[in-house]
Amino acid sequence: MSPAISEPHKLTILVAEDDDFLSRVLIDKLEKENFKTIAAVDGEQAIQKIKTESIDLIILDMIMPKKTGFDVIDEVKNNPASKDIPIIILSNLGQESDIEQAKQKGVNDYLVKANISMVSVVQKIRAILG
């Protein structure tokens, strides 16, 4: 949870989202809300960024190339260095089985993109980061 050195007042959010349209608009919104953002376009890149960057919260899509959201959660939770980073799933997979499985793996929240506004996403982030 250590803030970035160059911008000590900004919390860093990793946005792991393969859809460029969605990623762009969400990153714009988060930056307007004074967060620092890092983008990852697939699961492998997300894992790489988590290992190399200082990240305060992960926004994670479930269906992504190379590694799925579930793979990313496993990597994050099995690594002592990253296991405490909060994860918000932001996916259009909304079946109970997916939600249950992700929650069992320890994610903080599971949001369905089509059913939630960006303002609400920001509220959820602030509620977790305090």
């Binding site: 349209f21 259009n92 909304g94 089509a114």
Partner: peptide
């Protein structure tokens, strides 16, 4: 849902 989400957010 994905394209509908994009319309929504934009």
């Amino acid at each position: 849902r994905t394209p509908l989400s994009a319309i929504n957010w934009y």
